[in-house]
């Protein structure tokens, strides 16, 4: 089971900040393909992948990152701190 977290406009488009998923996805990209198929909101949220960032177990990662042993994956737009 992986916890999927969404922040900012991804959270708004998908309509939830968190979901749990049983997945066989090997990488973040595989997981995104699976998530896109879940609803229109998901498809809309993941439409422009250049404006997406991902963290795997709370560390910034690439979409090619493997998911073996991972507990938490978060998707969000580029950060605007400071």
């Amino acid at each position: 089971m992986i916890d999927i977290l969404y922040f900012a406009w991804l959270r708004e488009r998908i309509g939830t900040n968190r979901e749990r998923l049983e997945t066989t996805a090997a990488t973040v990209s595989d997981l995104v393909a699976e998530l896109e198929a879940r609803s229109e909101g998901h498809a809309l949220a993941f439409a422009d992948k250049t404006s997406l960032r991902v963290a795997v177990d709370q560390e910034l990662a690439d979409f090619s990152a493997p998911l073996a042993g991972v507990r938490e994956v978060a998707f969000f737009p580029p950060m605007t701190g400071g």
């Binding site: 922040f7 900012a8 406009w9 963290a55 910034l60 978060a74 969000f76 737009p77 580029p78 950060m79 605007t80 701190g81 400071g82």
Partner: peptide
């Protein structure tokens, strides 16, 4: 620290105005 906080700390700002709300773009 400021440069890294801007783009690498997971915060997202949303401006709420009289005509609605908008996420601040990086």
């Amino acid at each position: 620290l400021m440069d890294y906080l801007k783009s690498r700390a997971p915060f997202w700002k949303k401006e709420i105005g009289a005509d609605g709300a908008a996420w601040v773009a990086a």
